[in-house]
Design a binder for these strands. Structure first.
Lengths: 210, 210
DNA sequence: CAAGTCACAATGCAAATGCACGGTAAAGAC
DNA sequence: GTCTTTACCGTGCATTTGCATTGTGACTTG
């Protein structure tokens, strides 16, 4: 074997270029040459590591998914062994909102891919599994918190579904400029209180405009 | 003037072809020739009515927006002059969920355009205004319903923001196959009850799987 | 009927696209 | 040393792209 090159590393570098372009200019005008230019390499190299454009795209979306998963795992570990259910749920979901540059970029990529994979369902299968797990986790956390009485509150799995979908919708509205980050956070926090039936703890109602 | 042709009509026919393609195959591979073929016309005709591809796209998104607005207006009129606030809110928001073929198609187009316009903010400005109005309307409805005591409920505008974003997120998850329509409806209904602080009215918890 | 205007068709074209392919150099195997 | 494998480059190519341009027939107006 000649020059030792870790394929995964190189491919990930290229996937990074893809993501930058997807976030900055949109998925549509991503070409092999454009990716090569963005990554600062030759086009032959891109071809060397990805036989086809679709393969490159699939890999890139997989990288995004793994990163999100990693971030969630990190955040989870950071909470310790026996975190309070509500704190855990809040931490994980908040991690999905586009509240800083990195997550804003990832959100854009995610949005682009959501539209893309709405047409190519094969690509969205792993992502689907990921959100399913998240929903399941939330259901458990919610159930653990309010075992006693869940009066007229929605059932735990409905509450979990609502939280996940709400975060998705809020993210989308932030990314498209329909909402400011602080508005999104306010709505999210309020919903968290609803789902866990927890203390109102004086929602500050700080509403920064755009 | 020779042959009388209503430009708006022809352009809308073409926009319909664009929307069908966007929903079926995605925005990315829409070409002028492809649109022409889908509409069953020559490519010269497409060029005749749209000077440029971007112009065609802008027009198509505008049509989608106007249709949604029209549907909301119709639904609103259908409710009579003095509808109950909660009924009105439910009807309008439910109109936005992809619960039948037509709205499923429109949802796909909307998702594609959301991703597209996340990169071209100029196109998303009118759409932004539209959701702003919807949010405002909901705020009024919510405030009207629970004037008396709004104990630990989130403030009316936060509740409105939450509803709109939730519907958006639920739609997205339905369109990408993460949720079934009935799951989405269940979550939506539950949230409506939260926002309006209304009767639990026995959420049937019917959860059809995908 | 002459003239002008407009709807639409057909072709052309430069640019960009994804990909195939051959070449080169370097690093290990022997 | 030779040989083989691999990383990477460069070019070529058929296809597709958006758009310009020119042509043609139908219709209205004078």
């Amino acid at each position: 074997m000649p020059k030792v090159v870790d394929h995964r590393v190189r491919r990930t570098e290229l996937a990074d270029a893809v993501m930058r372009l997807a976030a900055r200019e949109g998925l549509s005008l991503i070409s092999l040459r454009y990716v090569a230019a963005e990554a600062g390499v030759s086009m032959g190299l891109v071809q060397h590591y990805f036989g086809t454009k679709d393969e490159m795209f699939s890999f890139a979306i997989q990288v995004v998914r793994e990163r999100v998963e990693q971030r969630l795992a990190d955040r989870s570990a950071q909470l310790g062994a026996e975190p309070q259910p509500r704190q855990a749920a809040e931490a994980l979901l908040r991690e999905l909102l586009p509240l800083d540059d990195r997550r804003w970029l990832e959100g854009h990529v995610g949005l682009a891919y959501a539209a893309y994979s709405a047409v190519r369902p094969d690509l969205s299968a792993p992502l689907r599994e990921q959100t399913r797990q998240l929903r399941e986790f939330l259901t458990v956390q919610i159930r653990a918190t309010r075992g006693e009485r869940d009066g007229m509150l929605p059932s735990a799995d409905v509450a979990a579904t609502t939280l996940v979908s709400l975060v998705e919708g809020l993210s989308m509205h932030v990314l498209t400029g329909h909402l400011s980050a602080s508005e999104a956070v306010a709505a999210f926090e309020a919903q968290l209180a609803v789902a866990f039936g927890a203390a109102p703890e004086a929602v500050p109602a700080k509403k920064g405009q755009r």
